[in-house]
């Protein structure tokens, strides 16, 4: 796949929650390989709902293509290997008794041997600077460390795209800075939903602005922020 082809393409995506709320009202979006895009917008504007469609956790109407393959019920597992999803609250994501086992979860699920999964988990923990915590229980770590372990968990699965949903919500400034440095050094394409405009501006070149289930602006992040006075 060339650098000019989209790694994610979404056309006319619509979704309605069971209570009747129309969360997405025809979203069109493209992400190119190596690109970093911030998703901005008010609470309830549809950012998280949109992100949860990219790996088929929510299934609405419309067209979604990831890494050249149209998302369908039969290829969800394949798609989910391509997308590393970092959730807002690391406690939702870290469900195994020790850090090492949690980080090795993705590789093991991909069919790696225990040795290979362990090697990848150690490498990912090294990357996020938490090798020494491998044997600890996730709940013994600080919020910032837990978020980095969650990131290690998705890096160990070697995804092509990173999707981050409000990753700085529970972080203090040093942890936020550490996460920023980490993310800035990663080669993956990146989608970031956040209210932290400063954080987003340091990572992403482009931003899209969600409003009541629609993308109403798409362009350089400084312009989008300025247009909506989103600071």
């Amino acid at each position: 796949m060339s650098h000019h082809q989209p790694i994610i393409e979404v056309r006319d995506l619509r979704y309605r929650y069971e209570d009747g709320t129309e969360a997405l009202k025809g979203v069109d979006f493209m992400l190119h390989r190596g690109e970093r895009v911030a998703l901005l917008g008010a609470n309830g504007s549809g950012k998280t709902t949109f992100l949860l469609h990219l790996n088929g956790i929510l299934r609405g109407q419309g067209f979604i293509e990831v890494c050249g393959t149209e998302l369908a019920g039969s290829n969800l597992k394949w798609i989910r290997r391509r997308i590393g999803f970092l959730f807002q609250d690391p406690d939702d994501q870290l469900f195994l008794p020790t850090v090492l086992e949690d980080v090795a979860f993705g590789p093991l699920e991909q069919g790696c041997t225990a040795e290979d999964a362990t090697r990848r988990a150690h490498a990912a923990l090294e990357h996020v600077g938490l090798s020494v915590e491998a044997a600890r229980a996730p709940h013994r770590l600080s919020a910032g460390q837990r978020q980095r372990v969650a990131l290690a968990g998705i890096l160990a699965a070697e995804p092509e795209i990173l999707v981050l949903d409000e990753p700085t919500t529970h972080l203090d400034p040093p942890s936020r800075g550490a996460l920023l440095t980490l993310l800035a050094g990663l080669p993956q394409s990146l989608l970031l939903a956040t209210h932290d405009v400063v954080f987003a501006a340091q990572l992403a070149q482009r931003a899209v602005f969600f409003d009541r289930g629609r993308i109403i602006a798409d362009g350089p992040i400084d312009q989008v922020v300025q247009e909506f006075r989103w600071t």
């Binding site: 956790i57 999803f85 406690d91 939702d92 994501q93 469900f95 979860f105 991909q110 998705i154 699965a157």
Partner: peptide
């Protein structure tokens, strides 16, 4: 509500309700 979010995270990480061992 958290159970719902944890399940989503489990799915997003390609997992099912089973856990494989690093050390047999």
């Amino acid at each position: 509500a958290r159970a719902e979010r944890v399940h989503r995270a489990l799915l997003a990480r390609g997992g099912e309700a089973r856990f494989l061992l690093l050390q047999p």
